[in-house]
């Protein structure tokens, strides 16, 4: 019985811890500006209004008050973030699958060093590489395009993707591959029809990880982009922090918009994420 009490107390405590901060900005996003600054605060909007969200669709109404284009840019920034994060996830899975397969199935010289080198590239802070990276992107004529961001984030996420996938691939029974081979399947065909479908949880976990890496990143997004044709939501959110005549309710609404798409995604894939990560822990 005490066990139950402890369990439920902890569960409720954690639920509050996780939700209350986010609830606060959701709450504010439905307020009028005057209510948001009231003392004591309203923990529920007195007369809720969708006005802040509507102003993203119709920014001209707010333009008189808002100095920068952040409001008009927000919906496009969410769209850019989606495109970039989704593409990053796909590119990562393709590149990661090949590499991870080699680590999970083939014994080869230098595999250990290679794995560490992959990981090492993640230990160098972004600021160290941002300027030469900018130069590379400029040389490739990719500045201010999705390409620059997708490539950046691919390199960020790829090492961890490979680690996640190699662990999951190792749990796939070898017999399945052998069976496919007996059927004279080519390697690509075998991967596509047998191996990858079985590895779905690992692939989903890796994809979500890459997606989040891309969705959340700020500094490279700031430096590799210059216009709304590629700026992502963290860049625009930062504008709200410093430049816009602070309408906190508007900022809160932009913050909520920045959270909802990935949140929906992880909620859908919730079960597969844990399952996909679990593979690594089954080890000898």
């Amino acid at each position: 019985m005490t066990r139950k009490v402890v369990l439920y107390t902890l569960a409720i405590g954690f639920a509050l811890y996780l939700v209350v901060p986010f609830y606060w900005i959701v709450n504010m996003s439905f307020m009028h500006e005057a209510d948001a600054a009231s003392v004591p605060p309203h923990f529920l909007p007195d007369n809720p209004t969708p006005e802040n969200y509507l102003s993203f669709a119709n920014p001209s109404a707010k333009e008189a008050l808002v100095g920068s284009n952040a409001v008009a840019d927000t919906p496009y920034a969410v769209l850019n973030s989606l495109v970039v994060a989704f593409s990053t996830a796909v590119v990562n899975l393709v590149l990661g699958t090949f590499a991870a397969y080699s680590f999970s199935r083939i014994r080869f010289r230098g595999s250990q060093v290679l794995l560490i080198v992959y990981l090492l590239t993640r230990m160098v802070p972004g600021i160290a590489i941002i300027i030469p990276f900018y130069l590379v992107m400029r040389t490739l004529d990719l500045l201010d395009t999705y390409g620059a961001l997708i490539l950046s984030y691919t390199t960020f996420a790829l090492p961890i993707t490979i680690w996640i996938l190699k662990d999951y691939f190792r749990t796939v029974p070898r017999e399945l591959e052998d069976a496919a081979r007996v059927d004279r399947c080519g390697w690509f065909r075998m991967m596509w029809t047998v191996f990858l479908p079985i590895s779905a949880p690992g692939l989903v976990a890796a994809a979500i990880f890459s997606f989040m890496t891309a969705w959340n990143e700020f500094m490279f997004a700031l430096f590799m982009t210059s216009t709304i044709s590629s700026q992502t939501i963290p860049v625009i959110a930062a504008n709200f922090a410093t430049d816009v005549e602070t309408q906190v309710t508007l900022m809160a609404a932009a913050g909520v918009l920045a959270v909802v798409p990935p949140l929906v995604l992880v909620l859908i894939c919730q079960r597969l994420i844990v399952q996909g990560m679990a593979a690594g822990s089954v080890k000898g």
Binding site: S226, A238, A241, T242, D243
Partner: peptide, 11 residues
């Protein structure tokens, strides 16, 4: 091209 004020110098 307008650049966000807080990062103008850096960018």
């Amino acid at each position: 091209t307008p650049i966000t004020s807080s990062q103008y110098v850096q960018k």
